[in-house]
């Protein structure tokens, strides 16, 4: 049966090679790297991590069963929530351990019967509006939401005004006939 794995990440110290990676990733944790490409940190951090062979304890989350409706809400919500530690990824995409924890939280809230607004409030209360990929319409985002429509409107008005202005204006003979073009080409100094 499907179960919400959501990359419930490994307990520490599993497999030698993979453990090394975990240190590296966690070492950079305050500028955490997800699937992104922060490469430069490399050499310097390698030194640091060699003697801190400690690993972040990654929580293994038990499955939370959801009804079909709740599952749909959960799946719809995740892409709208931003993973804070990542470069620019949603909770649906991120492989960071905090993202896994937050997915578990969200899933738990969905299972408790909370709706979209309540869950979003739960997250913005803690992390601020930054977590919402779709900012709510309010005074400071008015231009963001109205802007595109206004732009189209403005463009259409300008377009109509332009055609009005040129109405009945005799058309300059088009210069695209080959003779005229050839003449221009031949005029080359």
């Amino acid at each position: 049966m499907p179960f919400d794995a959501n990359t419930p990440s490994s307990p520490p110290g599993r497999g030698p090679g993979f453990a090394l990676h975990m240190h590296l990733r966690n070492a950079k944790n305050w500028i955490p790297a997800c699937a992104g490409m922060t490469k430069r940190l490399g050499a310097a951090l390698l030194l640091l991590t060699i003697f801190t062979a400690n690993a972040e304890v990654e929580t293994v989350h038990p499955p939370i069963p959801l009804t079909e409706q709740q599952e749909a809400l959960y799946k719809g919500l995740l892409p709208e929530l931003r993973c804070l530690v990542c470069q620019n990824e949603s909770l649906a995409e991120s492989q960071a351990s905090l993202a896994a924890d937050l997915r578990y939280e969200v899933r738990g809230l969905v299972a408790k019967g909370q709706d979209e607004a309540q869950i979003k409030k739960y997250l913005t209360d803690r992390y601020g509006d930054f977590v919402l990929y779709k900012p709510p319409f309010e005074q400071r985002t008015a231009l963001l939401w109205a802007g595109p429509g206004l732009l189209v409107l403005l463009g259409l008005i300008m377009l109509v005004a332009y055609t009005r202005r040129t109405r009945g204006v005799p058309t300059a003979p088009p210069k695209n006939d080959e003779a005229a073009l050839k003449k221009i080409l031949d005029d080359a100094p």
Binding site: N29, W30, I31, P32, V57, T59, L84, V85, L98, D101, L102, E105, R126, Y127, G128
Partner: peptide, 17 residues
């Protein structure tokens, strides 16, 4: 805070904070 629950309630998104 082994499971990071308090971290979530405090809005921690990376250590140290």
């Amino acid at each position: 805070d082994l499971e990071g629950r308090a971290g979530i309630d405090w809005g921690v998104y990376g250590v140290p904070e």
